[in-house]
Amino acid sequence: MKKHRAFLKWAGGKYSLVEDIERHLPPSRKLIEPFVGAGSVFLNTDYDQYLLADINPDLINLYNILKKEPKRFIEDAKGMFDQAHNVKSVYLGIRDEFNQTQDPYVRSLYFLYMNRHGFNGLCRYNKKGGFNVPFGSYKKPYFPEAEMEFFAEKSKRATFVCESYVETFKKARKGSVIYCDPPYAPLSTTANFTSYAGNGFSLDDQATLADCAEHAAQNKQVPVLISNHDTALTRRLYHGASLSVVKVKRTISRNGSGRNKVDELLALFQSAKDNVSQ
């Protein structure tokens, strides 16, 4: 099966892990993702229905607009991917406009533009909620037209909502399966644990997520698969799940020598009944 890339650059995207994730997801009619991010798992699985959530309103807004009016949006976005727009002063001007406007359509166009023209495809906001990623200085930023067309077509099966993972878990019903790709736990307690999407994802959140997963599996018969770093902390949090380890290449430090394999943990929470039947 052809693998499909997300149209957004995204830190911690799951493109390279899709096969492993799919192998561990129990069969179901509906896939729920409380941390959809760039949507690699959505794009590379085949469920009848999807409920895709994220705490970032700009991301969900973009997905809903692309779903609703793909032709118009792709055409308008394409106009921003020429050399005239690939200039630092123009980028900074668009970033300012983005931070001042509340117009959902304009924000979506600018969000895509900044994702491809900004440094490393980062998505970062300051304390006041202003997008603050610097210019990326790329020779010719890629316009992901085919990827957007595929996403728009597939999104006919999806509902996109902006809400917290706790809210999304409440919506899960039997017959669904949940995949969680939360901001990862720090590799060590001294690791710089920066905030995520402007709201932070604390160690308490890591623990709450594990509780939500256990509750969904035991009380609702909804299996939950979570990916995270393989650390003493995550193993303790996921003690009620079946654990699988996957080797993954990840850039940890800024220089190339920091590229080494970090073990990735896939934790599957299922009801006691499901565990027996396997």
Rank of each mutant, 00 (worst) to 15 (best):
P34T: 04
R5W: 12
H4M: 13
Y105W: 10
K71Y: 14
K67R: 12
A11C: 01
N44T: 07
V90I: 11
P134V: 07
Q218P: 06
F201M: 02
N44H: 10
E33P: 07
S242D: 14
H4Y: 15
P134R: 10
T45P: 02
K140G: 06
S16C: 06
Q221G: 13
R29P: 09
P223D: 03
L66K: 05
Q102I: 14
D211S: 15
L233C: 02
K171M: 07
V246T: 03
Y91T: 07
T251S: 14
T190C: 09
G258K: 04
A241M: 01
N64G: 02
P70D: 09
V90D: 07
S242C: 09
Q221P: 10
G200P: 08
S277D: 13
N86I: 05
Y138D: 04
K156A: 12
L25W: 00
I65P: 05
K78N: 10
G13F: 09
G175I: 04
L187T: 01
G198K: 04
G121L: 02
N192A: 11
G121W: 03
A172C: 00
T168R: 01
L187H: 00
I55G: 09
N115S: 02
L112H: 12
Q278N: 12
L209P: 06
A241S: 03
A158P: 02
Y105E: 09
Y15W: 11
D76P: 00
N115T: 10
D54Q: 05
P223G: 03
D58Y: 11
Q270V: 14
L25S: 05
D103K: 13
D204S: 15
A216S: 11
S253M: 12
T234S: 03
A241T: 00
C162H: 04
A207N: 06
L62Y: 12
H215A: 11
H85F: 14
K140T: 13
I21T: 08
K220P: 03
A53L: 04
K139A: 13
S202M: 08
G129L: 05
A185S: 09
A53G: 13
M80R: 08
K127G: 14
Y63F: 14
L268G: 01
G130E: 15
Q49E: 15
D263N: 13
F42L: 01
G39Q: 07
P144R: 08
K273H: 13
L25I: 15
L187D: 00
V248F: 14
K156Y: 10
F119V: 00
N120C: 08
N192L: 14
K3V: 08
D96P: 03
G200W: 04
A77K: 07
A197F: 14
A11F: 09
D263K: 07
A77C: 09
A146F: 05
N199Y: 15
K156R: 15
K170G: 07
S227K: 01
G93M: 15
S188G: 03
N56P: 04
K247E: 11
G79T: 13
H229K: 00
E75D: 13
K273E: 15
V276L: 15
D20Y: 13
P223V: 04
K2E: 14
A216Y: 05
R95D: 12
G118H: 06
N126Q: 10
V222Y: 05
G240V: 07
I65L: 15
